[in-house]
Nucleic acid binder design. Structure first.
Length: 271
DNA sequence: GCTAACGTCGGA
DNA sequence: TCCGACGTTAGC
């Protein structure tokens, strides 16, 4: 049990009515699912930045840097999400990613040396906890801590990070990182399915409610649980606000968030 | 081939 | 506008 808002199934009580044996299609990047951090959200919120050694968060200590690589586990080539996962940096990384998707943050590419000097060796340290304790609160604090993100980006950002707000550059960057053009909703002849973002609150839910019409009518409806429906996919492609990718920031005060809070208070929300 | 689930359409 | 049904796509 990590905290009250942990979404991982490990934190669900065995007798939880919402805990289903089968968890369909988890789109989350593993790195986002298995991260933990020494500081909770409340720590970031309540502690003025000088009290939190941001530099220390971003630049691992020698001890951390000297942590031996795990030989039994072949390391894949680092991609930018990994590079952003310092021992304590995922909150920043996640925040920065969301900001960049929203076009609110642009990063100057780090030097090759910087890009290769950190990141891939640290990501394993984020392996045992939950990263979702802050999620519903993103909108409450990200926009007010802009200085953190360029800093984090300069130190940890791998290579070609840049704003993905609009245009071919953003798509190109995503494609380069393994997102297929089809999954991005672009290109390709005919319609292509978009994929769940894996980062919004509904996506992070791991269990179906079994109560909504979609759950009850799954056989014929072919629809995912309403409470797990990706916020991105709810938007019409090409419609207003689409591709602004600001779902993470719209959560505050949204109906969904309010419902989420209510669910949590009722103990019906997973994690 | 099976299953999950996105996209679309038509009815309420 | 919402909801259900169905075709279709995509992953396994």
């Amino acid at each position: 049990m990590h905290n009250v808002s942990c979404f991982n199934s490990c934190c669900l009580p065995d007798n939880s009515p919402t805990r289903s044996a089968k968890i369909p299609n988890e789109p989350l990047r593993p790195s986002l699912k298995r991260s933990s951090h020494p500081y909770s959200l409340s720590h970031y919120i309540s502690t003025p930045s000088p009290a939190v050694d941001v530099k220390g968060l971003i630049q691992p200590s020698p001890a951390q840097e000297q942590r031996p690589a795990q030989p039994s586990k072949p390391r894949r080539a680092p991609s930018w999400p990994d590079m952003w996962e310092s021992p304590s940096g995922l909150h920043l990384a996640h925040a920065a990613e969301l900001l960049m998707r929203a076009g609110l943050l642009a990063l100057t590419p780090a030097t090759t040396e910087q890009a290769s000097g950190s990141g891939p060796e640290e990501d394993e340290e984020d392996s045992s906890g939950c990263s979702t304790d802050f999620q519903p609160f993103l909108g409450a604090w990200f926009p007010f801590s802009p200085a953190l993100f360029p800093l984090a980006g300069f130190q940890m950002g791998g290579g070609h990070w840049r704003s993905t707000a609009v245009g071919a550059e953003g798509i190109e960057g995503l494609v380069a990182e393994g997102y297929s053009p089809s999954s991005l909703g672009g290109g390709g002849a005919g319609r292509r399915k978009r994929k769940r973002c894996g980062e919004c609150v509904p996506c992070r839910r791991q269990t179906n409610c079994e109560q909504c019409s979609s759950c009850r009518n799954r056989k014929r409806g072919h629809q995912i649980c309403k409470y797990r429906k990706c916020e991105e996919l709810k938007r019409k492609p090409g419609g207003p606000g689409f591709d602004s990718r600001v779902s993470g920031f719209d959560l505050r005060g949204s109906d969904f968030t309010l419902g989420l809070a209510q669910e949590r208070s009722n103990g019906t929300l997973d994690g």
